[in-house]
Write a protein that binds this DNA or RNA. Structure first.
Length: 565
RNA sequence: GGCCCCAUCGUCUAGCCUGGUCUAGGACACCUCCCUUUCACGGAGGUAACGAGGGUUCGAAUCCCUCUGGGGUCACCA
């Protein structure tokens, strides 16, 4: 924990712990962090777990882990031990979990009630729904107004019925000007804000109340949050006035959208799966994906979401790509945290001067609210991939090796087990320059994991071309299949199975039998050991597959290709 | 529907506040060519935008108005 400096700004990121940290939230956190840290201020994490039904401890920890992975560390907030052993969080303004601050909120409820600035309301859900319907019928927005104080008898009756009151704020009927550093000022006409609930019947504060109290008590000076909160700010401002609190400076960030203009949402993954299931007209879950019960429940209700592991298994079985939505999805896909931060920073902010590539240090130095873009941006995964490719290409061999190992340890342990450390390192080296993500060495080289007799040769245009190209040539050159037959003997006779030895032998053969065109020999070999026309460089690939396996695959490929029409 | 906000290449954006240097710059994508044992990488070039209409002005992407389009919000969720 760092000592709080009184001079700098104080910002906070206040997620509600349900689900995972998604890219929009990550960007809000990044901006908040950069704004405070670039000005000698304090960055706080606060967990807004006032919705008992939706909040979970696991989700809280997940948020902290994702934030830490991105390189965003907080000066105050939940205590967390990073993988490198650093202790993060703590602080003198806790608890940083709203569910542990109930006594604090109660004091302020009492104050407002005593001053007549808030009142208890006993309306039932049904009564409220009826009022809402009426408003809709009149084509008006529903706004709750003080409906009179119930008599002592009424209250006694409600109590007997088991009703619990909520506390509503008596909103002054005056125009309210929202001051926003990003969007500029906006004035809401008098009466726009209704008497909103500040304490739920379970005794928990609503978001509006807790956020106002906590921001004051934690001395937050700048609030950066999603644009969906813009209108809420009016509520927060009238509350601050009633409570005698200071007003933080606000900045509302535009939402991040999918390329098809829909709002990025965690449901997007289920959408892709539902579509695939429908297209394939599946009636039962593929073997080893999800249970029949999960399957039935999921397909029976659009609101039910598959758990992540199940969704991943199903996506693999259906051969569809799940869209990355959450920070952890991008991590799993092999994106670098520095790339995610860089790209996210650029999605809604720009340093100007055509600068695009920068790190969090730069962002910290340069970030300012007046350069935040007001328009919703589409999240372009293609450009993100390009950024990640550049970052990976710029990495040293050693860094790529180290980070590839770290990635595999978490997401691809089977490669480490199957290949052993020497061949695993060779795989990374051989894949580095053609990798766009840390996952590419594994994602694109699944043939290394399958057993020799299970390797499937793909019967496509490129394969056929490579195997028969010579036969089609007019000069009587040999076909790829013939090269393969010949190479079987050449390779089997090799005293050692190393890249230089393999290359030398193949070159010698090609000089004599393929007019020096090594490609007409390399491609058939590639097909034989990998099953397709795409793999790391061929000599490395042969070493990765290994001598015995390569020869066995060669044999199978010759048999397979001989049967091709 | 009420209220609020926004509007530059397909996409992310620079420029707008402080009108002229904008025949509108960069990046990703796309197209062409080069390199190449596959796939990638890389190199050279190219296509591509100020939503529409009115003003103001000698001059508007930049200032004003209208329209159109987009977004947010209208919960005892945050």
């Amino acid at each position: 924990m760092t000592a709080r400096s009184d001079s700098g700004p104080v910002t906070r990121f206040a997620p509600s712990p349900s689900g995972h940290l998604h890219v929009g939230g990550a960007r809000t956190a990044l901006y908040s962090w950069a704004f405070a840290k670039g000005r000698g201020g304090t960055f706080i994490i606060r967990i807004e777990d006032t919705d008992q039904k939706r909040s979970s401890d696991a989700a809280s920890v997940g948020f902290l882990k994702d934030l830490d992975w991105l390189g965003i560390r907080w000066d105050e907030g939940p205590e967390y031990v990073a993988p490198d052993g650093t202790r993060v969080g703590g602080g003198a303004n806790g608890s940083y979990f709203q569910s542990e601050r109930l006594a604090i909120y109660d004091r302020y409820f009492a104050q407002l009630l005593a001053e007549g600035k808030a009142y208890e309301a006993w309306d039932s859900t049904e009564e409220l729904d009826a009022l809402r319907k009426e408003a809709t019928a009149r084509k008006e927005a529903f706004r709750y107004r003080f409906r009179g104080t119930p008599s002592a008898e009424d209250i006694a009756r409600y109590r007997a019925e088991g009703r619990q009151p909520v506390v509503r704020f008596r909103t002054p009927q005056v125009p309210i000007t929202i001051q926003d550093e990003v969007l500029g000022d906006a004035t809401l006409p008098a009466g726009e804000v209704d008497d909103f609930v500040i304490r739920k019947k379970d005794g928990f504060p609503t978001y509006h109340f807790a956020v106002v109290v906590d921001d004051e008590l934690m001395r937050v000076t700048h609030v950066l949050r999603a644009q969906e909160h813009f209108t809420n700010t009016a509520k927060h401002m009238v509350l601050q006035d009633a409570l005698g609190f200071r007003r933080p400076t606000y900045g509302h960030l535009s939402i991040i959208k999918n390329p098809d203009d829909s709002k990025m949402s965690k449901r997007d993954k289920d959408k892709v799966l539902r579509k695939a299931v429908k297209e394939k007209a599946l009636t039962a879950p593929p073997e080893g994906t999800v249970t029949i019960e999960e399957w039935t429940k999921w397909l029976g209700d659009d609101n039910v979401q598959l758990d992540l592991e199940g969704a991943i298994r199903l996506a693999e079985a259906l051969k569809v790509q799940l869209p990355e939505i959450n920070v952890d999805d991008f991590r799993r896909s092999g994106y670098l945290p520095e790339t995610i931060c860089n790209f996210l920073a650029l999605n809604g902010w720009s340093p100007g001067h055509d600068i695009e590539k920068f790190d969090n240090e730069f962002l910290k130095e340069r970030f300012s609210l007046d350069r935040v873009i007001k328009t919703p941006a589409k999240f372009d995964r293609v450009k993100l991939l390009a950024f990640n490719t550049d970052a990976i290409n710029a990495m040293s061999r050693e860094d790529f090796l180290r980070r590839g190992r770290e990635h595999a340890a978490v997401f691809r342990p089977e490669y480490l087990e199957k290949l052993g450390s020497a061949r695993f390192d060779l795989l990374l080296h051989a894949s580095h320059e053609r990798s766009k993500t840390l996952d590419d060495p594994f994602k694109t080289n699944g043939f290394l994991l399958v057993s020799d007799d299970a390797l499937a040769f793909s019967d496509d245009k490129n394969v056929r071309k490579a195997l028969s190209v010579g036969a089609l040539a007019a000069d009587g050159a040999k076909s790829g299949l013939e090269h393969l037959r010949a190479m079987r003997g050449v390779l089997a006779a090799l005293p050692e199975w190393t890249q230089p030895a393999l290359e030398a032998a193949a070159n010698a053969y090609a000089a004599e039998h393929a007019a020096g065109k090594i490609g007409s020999v390399a491609q058939p070999l590639r097909i034989a050991v990998s099953g397709s026309t795409v793999s790391p460089p061929i000599w490395e690939t042969l070493v990765l597959v290994g001598r015995d396996a390569s020869l066995a695959r060669l044999e199978r490929c010759i048999a397979w290709a001989s049967g091709l029409g």
